[in-house]
Design a protein around this nucleic acid. Sequence first.
DNA 1: CTGAAAGCGCTAACAG
DNA 2: CTGTTAGCGCTTTCAG
Lengths: 338, 338
Amino acid sequence: MAVTIAEVARRAGVSKSTVSRYLNGLYDHMGVDTKERIAQVIAELDYRPNALARSLKQKRTHTVGAIVANILNPFSTSIIRGIEDTLNEAGFNLILCNADDDPAKERDYVNMLVDKQIDGLIINTTGCNNELIAQVNQTIPIVLIDRKASDITIDTVTVDSAKGVRQAIDHLVALGHAGIAMLTLPYDHVSPRLERVQAYQAALAVHNLAFREEWLVQTSMEDEVILSKLHALLDGEVTADKPTSIFCANNMITMSVVKAIKQMGVTIPKEIAVLGFDDWEWAQLIDPPVTVVAQPVYDMGNKAADLLIKRIKGGRSSKKPITILFEPQLLKRKSCGE
Amino acid sequence: MAVTIAEVARRAGVSKSTVSRYLNGLYDHMGVDTKERIAQVIAELDYRPNALARSLKQKRTHTVGAIVANILNPFSTSIIRGIEDTLNEAGFNLILCNADDDPAKERDYVNMLVDKQIDGLIINTTGCNNELIAQVNQTIPIVLIDRKASDITIDTVTVDSAKGVRQAIDHLVALGHAGIAMLTLPYDHVSPRLERVQAYQAALAVHNLAFREEWLVQTSMEDEVILSKLHALLDGEVTADKPTSIFCANNMITMSVVKAIKQMGVTIPKEIAVLGFDDWEWAQLIDPPVTVVAQPVYDMGNKAADLLIKRIKGGRSSKKPITILFEPQLLKRKSCGE
DNA sequence: CTGAAAGCGCTAACAG
DNA sequence: CTGTTAGCGCTTTCAG
């Protein structure tokens, strides 16, 4: 049996209330001797208050939950570091969950976290649990990160995808690429994916390049799938009918595309240029170093946590939901030619 | 105010006990009508039991904590995925924490998790909180992953570092390398680091290669530091006095070393070979693809969770602590020459 | 088959 | 300056 506050009180010869006050730093008007006695007993018994009991009473857990889409993605882990640091500084604990881009898992995690009475929630959402999220947000502050939720208004921290894509396409065009294909994961419910596809089309139009349906390819993450999609794209007979560059909608795609292209024995950038959205630490070690549109992920994590803490402290009656847009930045490396 | 079990009971016209039984699936001897009425009220009110209250009473949270050393390391995230999957399957929740290789953070997380009454704990420890860990382990099952804790016996899941290093050195020697340097992070408290250093020395001996103090270099992760250490190692005048290969003790070091070497304008593997401990998804995309000793990280996560669950269910009186050793595997790529 | 009552470990009025 | 009391929301004997 773990030692409880009652035991501490008994040994110190005081009441539970007094010990409780001590624990909560309310020793303004506490007898110095009492204080010392309690401190000593606590040290002796190595007493630690039960956080469950405390939270049950206080109705605050000082804990926030964060659900990321895919923890294997460096994008997620950088965001996590940002969230974590800000939270720690403010004295909040973090419960981290990995939805694995699975709506069912996401739903379960949201529920689990709510059940555990978290004070707030940060989600990189699959986009398939909007009703649930909206409902939870009535009671518990939620901040969405990276991905917006359509049809519901919740605090959101994300990046200006349109601007990033525009920089990417401009760069490719400037380097003489007229055939620009795009590879993306299914963009049904994931806002940045959709935005990037739309921005891609818009940017092509700006440069008077025709949008080719077959050059906007939707893929899954399986290596074989990506490989076959690339074969379809690049194995045409007529040179004029092949794209000379590929824009990848996120870093996981970029990595897989580079891997597949190498496997095909095609040279980057000579035969095909590659440009990706999202930077990651090892992008520059790749052969050739990959040109990317970088997002300030760590800062985004910071900001999301910041916003959430304000909501938690401000009470439910705060202000209207806001959206914070970060600026993307094109990092020119070697994968798009000169 | 969130809806409570009392409210559900009131509306369903039954007692709290009955609702509680329903919630816990104890409807063996429950009136079908009662059951349905409760189900309906719960659905109507969208009632969710307060996990804090429940756990406070039950003294079980169905939650385990995991503390990793560095969440930015793909090694950690793969382990996490392994832990997660096994835990989910068994109906346990996971609270994930990132100690950032900081003993103080680790200590705080351990305490936080204990306070939250977790049922078990998995730690990739800094090695600097052994007393605390041993103490907690008296009450709550702990499984160490990757890194052992010296002087205390706790369930541990790790890899046979010695064997891995041996494979690495054998490979380098087979390719004609007689000058083999090693780069490692400080190995004071981190068991695999120490083991790898020792195995490195042992393997050199086996091949009758002299151990050179100045070729075993301890570094921090800062780019500049690594760069300067490499300069010191490789800028010697006399060719005979420079190592022809570098063995990196883990993946973070490997990445940084590759980055630094490229920055120096030195060619891998022609001028210097590189071999790393730990594989990661993009190692093969690097120029040149890096030869590594891979660990079955996902499986290790699985196993650690598995072991922990058994301990949790088996009660504290289980058997003696055990150590599970996984087999490393050399993945030959291009960074060590032919 | 169901209810009453006690209590998990803590906090928070309210007294004194 | 400190103690008494009454819960937080749930589970769990023990009756009936």
